[in-house]
Computed example of a mutant assay.
Amino acid sequence: MEYSVSSLDNMLNRGIPAKTITELCGIAGSGKTQLALQIAINCAKETHKTVLYIDTKGDFSALRIQKILEKCQYSFKEVAAIMSRIHISYIWTMEELVNLFKNLKNGELVIDNLVLLVIDSLPSLMFQYLGEDNKLGLSLLNSFVNYSRFICKQLNIGIICINMQTRWVDQDLTDVEDEENSTAYKDSFTEKRYRCLGRYWQHIPTLVLELEKIKENDNENNSGIKITVLHSIDSDYENRHCILCVGESGVT
């Protein structure tokens, strides 16, 4: 689906794939929601079809979308038309999410011209089932995956799921010799990042894109997002990366 962002489309040769699940992951503040909103905007603008944006955190901002479109010098009429094609659904539990997807599968919920579905984000729902409720959470996640795979193919749509990464720093002591040949120890630190949602989820998405916020010349107003392909069904794409610019006119 070549309606995301040009640099991302070029890196993947075909853009975000339809009929499958794509994951955007990264640590907090890496630009996941920024990119998801931009893909939703571009999709609604270029395809003239419907995007369903599922907000699980309660922080979706229509004003943010409006400002991006106005900075791109779209007319009031064009802004209204594009925004009308981005439908918002607020979901607070995994049960609600599973029921929504079940209704899409069974035809009880019909969204005309649906082409893309964005979930921002899955961990916000799954974190409610940590500990004693983990089995229930895993069962609900499994149901969500099954429904997602079905409606992707049935409705010929793409699904984007936003996932979190956790960052861990391991400290190692390395032997070193000083000038007197005595043994000393030097601290070394290794940073490791892990995608949330557990082992079951790790191989569910067909495409996994890792986001990392970068700054050019230490200027906050001149920032970007580095995107790396962590996983793809086509191994030739793995470890490819591109840089997207972030500004008042959105992500480009």
Rank of each mutant, 00 (worst) to 15 (best):
Y90R: 15
C72Y: 03
N156Y: 08
S84L: 04
L155H: 10
S232Q: 07
N99D: 07
C161W: 01
C196G: 08
S148D: 03
S84E: 13
L24I: 06
I157K: 06
C72S: 10
Y90N: 09
C161S: 05
C196H: 09
T174I: 15
L69T: 07
L230Y: 06
S84G: 14
W92Q: 13
T20R: 07
S121G: 06
H87N: 10
F144P: 12
E23D: 00
A18M: 12
K153I: 15
K192V: 10
N106Q: 09
S232I: 01
N219K: 12
F60W: 08
C25G: 00
N134I: 12
V208R: 14
S6P: 01
L125K: 00
E70P: 07
S75T: 14
A62P: 12
T206Y: 01
W168G: 00
N217Y: 09
V79F: 01
F60Q: 03
L207I: 07
L155I: 12
S139K: 05
I225M: 07
N163R: 05
L69N: 03
L136D: 00
S6F: 01
Y200A: 12
Q128A: 15
Q34L: 14
L136P: 04
V246K: 10
T252S: 10
L197P: 07
L197Y: 08
D175N: 11
I41D: 08
S121V: 02
I157D: 07
E248C: 03
L122N: 02
L63F: 03
A62S: 10
L130C: 08
N222H: 12
T20N: 12
G137H: 01
V229E: 04
E177S: 11
N106L: 13
C72E: 15
A81I: 06
I41T: 11
L207T: 11
S61H: 02
S30W: 09
Q202D: 02
K102G: 07
F127M: 11
Y147P: 00
F127V: 15
Q34N: 12
L104I: 15
E212D: 14
I82D: 06
G224H: 10
S89T: 09
N181A: 14
E96S: 11
E210M: 15
V145I: 13
T50A: 01
G107R: 04
A44C: 06
I16K: 04
D218G: 15
A40M: 08
V98L: 04
E180T: 14
K19Y: 05
N163V: 02
D59T: 08
Q128Y: 08
E210D: 14
K32H: 02
S84T: 05
Q171M: 12
I68Q: 05
W168P: 00
M164I: 01
L35C: 06
K57R: 08
I39S: 04
M1H: 07
N42C: 02
Y74V: 05
L197T: 09
K49G: 01
N106V: 07
T50P: 11
G31T: 05
E216Y: 15
E23P: 03
D133C: 03
N222Y: 07
V98R: 03
L155E: 09
I119A: 03
N106G: 12
I214Y: 04
K153C: 09
D218V: 09
